[in-house]
Design a protein around this nucleic acid. Structure first.
Lengths: 148, 148
DNA sequence: ATTGAAATGCAGATGTT
DNA sequence: AACATCTGCATTTCAAT
C-alpha cells in the first residue's frame, strides 16, 4: 500500500468507472501499470467490488430511517434471519450494547414503515430515527496513514 | 423506470464496472441502447455516481463504530462543522429524536476512538456502539416496485 | 457500421533488495 | 543476482457518433 495505491483508491472512490488510462494520467503511470496495481488490490481483497450510487428519492424511496433493535435474548437467530430476508433493509449492523442491531431501512411510505416495524416488534424492542439529511457519506475514512 | 432500467441498476449495484456490451447481453439489448439508458439515468439524477468498495480491515481500519450524538442545543452548527471536518467519520446522519446525529466512524485503534469521542463530547453527549458484523449492506432496498 | 479509445497480453528495460 | 514493477507495442474489445 504505497502512496500511488492510496491515490488510486481515492480516485476510484470518487469515480469507480475511471479507465486505467485516465487513472494513469492522474498518478503518472501507464495504463498497464495501473491495471496491474488495481488487479492486485482486487486479488488481495482490498478492493471488494464496484457499485453504482443511486438517489433513493428518485427511485421512489423517499423515506429512510435508522432502527435500533433490542432483540429478545432467545430470538437473536430468528431476528437475524428475518432481517436478511426483509427487502426494506439496506444495511444491518450487529453492534455491542443493549441495541444489538441497528438497521438502515428504506420505504415508499410511512405506512410501509409501520408495517415493517410491526414485523420487527415481535422479536425486539425498536427505536426508530428518521433520517433527515446525510451530511457525510464516504467509502472510507480520510485519515488513513500513507505508510508503505 | 421500466423493468429493464431496474435490471440495469441491480446489475450495476453488483458490479459498477460492467461494460455496456456486458450489460446488453444480460438485458438483451445492444450496447448503444444500454449506453443511452444509462446516460439518461445519470442525467436524470437516478444514478449519482460510481464507486469502489473497500475492505476497511485490509487498509488498516479494523475498528468501526456507530456513535449517537445528543448535541447541545446551542452547538448544532458547530457540531455539524466539526463532523464534516473529522477524518474518521465515514457517514453522518441527521435524524429525528434526542440523538440528533448518528455517525459511522472508522479508526485504527481504540485510543484513536477515544480521542475522537473526546472531541465530540465537548458538543454533545455520545453513545457508542461498536460494529461487530454487517450482515446486510446494499445500495437500495430490494422491494422497489417495478412499475413503469 | 465505422472510427477512435481503452483493455489486455507480452517482451524488454529499469530499479530495488 | 533476483524480484517486482514499469514502459512500449500489438491485438482485441469497447465506446461513441
Amino acid at each position: 500500500m504505497d502512496k500511488t495505491n492510496w491515490k488510486l483508491l481515492k480516485l476510484l472512490e470518487g469515480n469507480g468507472r475511471l479507465t486505467y488510462a485516465e487513472l494513469g494520467k492522474l498518478v503518472h503511470l501507464t495504463a498497464p501499470a495501473v491495471a496491474e496495481r488495481v488487479r492486485k488490490l482486487e486479488e488481495s481483497g482490498v478492493i471488494t467490488g464496484y457499485s453504482v450510487q443511486v438517489n433513493l428519492e428518485k427511485v421512489g424511496i423517499p423515506i429512510t430511517a435508522l432502527v435500533e433493535c433490542q432483540v429478545y435474548r432467545t430470538k437473536e437467530r430468528e431476528f437475524k434471519a428475518l432481517v436478511m430476508d426483509l427487502e426494506e433493509v439496506i444495511e444491518c449492523y450487529n453492534v455491542t450494547g443493549p441495541y444489538a442491531f441497528v438497521l438502515k431501512v428504506g420505504v415508499k411510505s410511512m405506512s410501509k414503515l409501520d408495517a415493517l416495524l410491526e414485523r420487527l416488534i415481535d422479536l425486539s424492542d425498536t427505536n426508530t430515527m428518521m433520517i433527515m439529511t446525510t451530511p457525510v457519506k464516504r467509502i472510507m475514512p480520510l485519515n488513513i496513514a500513507q505508510e508503505d
